[in-house]
Amino acid sequence: MVGETQWAKCGRFTGTTDIELTKGGAAQVSSAAVSLVGTDKFLDPSRLVHNFVSPRKRARQTFELLLPHFQEEKVTFTEDIAEWNYGDYEGLDAGEIRDSRKKRGLDRETEWDIWRDGCEGGESRQQVTERLDRLISQIRDIQKPYMNGEKPVDVLLVAHGLILRCFVKRWLGFSVDFPLQMILAPGAIAVLSYKNNNINEPALHVGMAFPAMASTEEEGGS
């Protein structure tokens, strides 16, 4: 997920607005890169066959901090993994959105829920579903021939909090409005895969083992 922005700190819905990471957000991603990115680390660039990145500035910054020496031919900046287009709700927080809708006579029986109701002037859940399914199909086409480990075919997504949670739901075959509660902190890394090396059994790693570190003897120490 992209690092922290000023709007994210304030709980404001940030979709198409092209704002940068805060200093803290950039430091957050840089720290993750040092700890988690590298040969035989949690995110090994040598295992990446492609990267799909949101075209928003904050996502590009996050990607460049994670992988400063990336190969351009292995990167696609695509609206398919851009944040949900919040339309008229851009820059508002959830409370302001709900208050505005109620004042206009909406949501008399149930509270507004973005997963179910979408955004006025922005995207519906169906539109989000269609673009995520298109991306998932691309990823599975890349990985399907190598499900038995013939070669590493890891794919990295660098995107935003809400759309990535939508992506997880679609990856697992759930609707965007399926009540699967998730927390994804700024700068966090999550892992999706397949059960039993089967392309038809997409899965979520609820616990991921870190690669074993080389021992002192292996590194040439005494």
Rank of each mutant, 00 (worst) to 15 (best):
L65P: 09
D141E: 15
S124L: 06
P45Y: 00
R125Q: 11
C166Q: 10
F13K: 12
I163T: 15
F174A: 15
Q143I: 07
G105C: 06
V53M: 01
W84I: 05
A27F: 04
F77M: 12
F52L: 05
D117V: 00
K144V: 03
A33G: 04
S215E: 12
L65Y: 06
G118S: 03
N196L: 10
Q6F: 05
E120F: 04
I142F: 15
G24I: 09
E217F: 11
D133P: 06
S31F: 08
G38F: 04
Q127I: 03
P211I: 14
G11D: 04
Q28I: 05
H160D: 07
A94G: 08
A190N: 09
G161L: 05
N85Y: 14
G221W: 15
Y194M: 08
L135C: 14
I163W: 02
T16F: 05
A27Q: 14
V37R: 05
S193V: 00
K74M: 10
A212E: 15
S54W: 02
Y89E: 06
D44V: 02
W84A: 03
T129K: 03
R56E: 10
V191G: 02
F63I: 02
Q6P: 01
G95C: 09
C119G: 06
R108S: 12
W7Y: 06
G25L: 12
M147S: 04
S31M: 10
N197S: 11
E20V: 03
L67H: 11
K9I: 13
T62E: 01
A159Y: 00
E120A: 09
A33V: 06
D80M: 09
E218R: 13
I81W: 05
L164H: 06
I81N: 07
V53C: 07
E4C: 03
V128Y: 00
S175D: 15
R98I: 12
G118E: 01
K102T: 11
G3T: 08
H205I: 04
S222I: 13
G91H: 13
V168M: 12
D177I: 04
R134M: 12
I81F: 08
R140T: 03
L48V: 15
R116W: 02
S193G: 15
F52E: 06
Y194R: 07
M147C: 04
V153Y: 06
L67W: 09
R131I: 11
G87W: 01
F167A: 13
E96S: 14
C10W: 15
T110C: 13
R56V: 01
T110H: 14
E123A: 00
R47W: 02
G87D: 04
W171H: 14
W7G: 01
F42M: 13
E111V: 08
L172Q: 13
C10V: 07
F167T: 09
V49W: 00
E4A: 03
L156R: 06
G95R: 14
E219V: 12
N198H: 07
A159V: 04
G95T: 14
T39P: 08
K41H: 09
G122F: 07
P152S: 01
G87C: 02
E109N: 14
T17K: 10
Y194S: 06
N197G: 08
E79C: 00
G105N: 06
V37P: 08
S31V: 10
E123I: 01
S31W: 09
G149N: 08
T14K: 01
C119I: 04
I163Q: 07
L156G: 05
G149M: 07
